[in-house]
């Protein structure tokens, strides 16, 4: 199993996606990498959007509105998925950081579930407050 996991690791994203019968450990590992790549892409997209602050008020407000809402508000789904990815990555990353300090190595799977449940509750609270004023611009 370990040799197969190493082989999948070397294959890149297509290899990481082979979750079948690998267990929750492999799922956590692979999703941490996928979510990390998504966040890196978003980081540079965010810098690109923020760069338009230098162009002027009308341009920035127009751009940030279009990339947030998109046609028929469809991009709001992407916003929710992005928030999901960030909260997942943060929770799993916190668990890994604690592991680096030697904390929770014996109860790794339980810690994964606990951290992810907490992060999903926080995600729900964040989304509620972030979107409760939707359309109030």
């Amino acid at each position: 199993m370990v040799e197969e996991n190493v082989k999948n690791l070397r294959e890149g994203p297509m290899g990481w996606a082979k979750f079948y019968r690998k267990g929750i450990g492999y799922f956590a590992f692979a999703m941490h990498r996928f979510s990390g790549l998504v966040i890196v892409f978003y980081l540079y997209l965010h810098l690109f959007v923020l760069s338009h602050l230098l162009v002027g008020k009308a341009t920035y407000n127009s751009l940030v509105t279009s990339v947030t809402y998109g046609p028929f508000d469809s991009f709001l789904v992407l916003d929710v998925l992005l928030a999901l990815v960030i909260f997942y990555h943060g929770a799993n990353g916190t668990r890994l950081a604690l592991n680096e300090l030697g904390i929770g190595l014996e109860n790794n799977k339980a810690m994964f579930y606990v951290f992810e449940v907490i992060s999903m509750v926080l995600l729900g609270i964040f989304l509620y407050y972030a979107y409760m004023f939707l359309g109030a611009s």
């Binding site: 199993m1 370990v2 996991n5 190493v6 690791l9 267990g23 929750i24 450990g25 492999y26 956590a28 590992f29 941490h32 990498r33 943060g90 799993n92 990353g93 916190t94 890994l96 950081a97 592991n99 680096e100 300090l101 190595l105 790794n108 799977k109 994964f112």
Partner: peptide, 29 residues
Amino acid sequence: MAEVEMSSGREVRSSTGSLGRMFQAASGL
């Protein structure tokens, strides 16, 4: 970076060094 197997904690490591992993964890926190 993350590990592949959770059960033993150290069955598969990525090629990032231990110092790199420690800084990654600290910056992540």
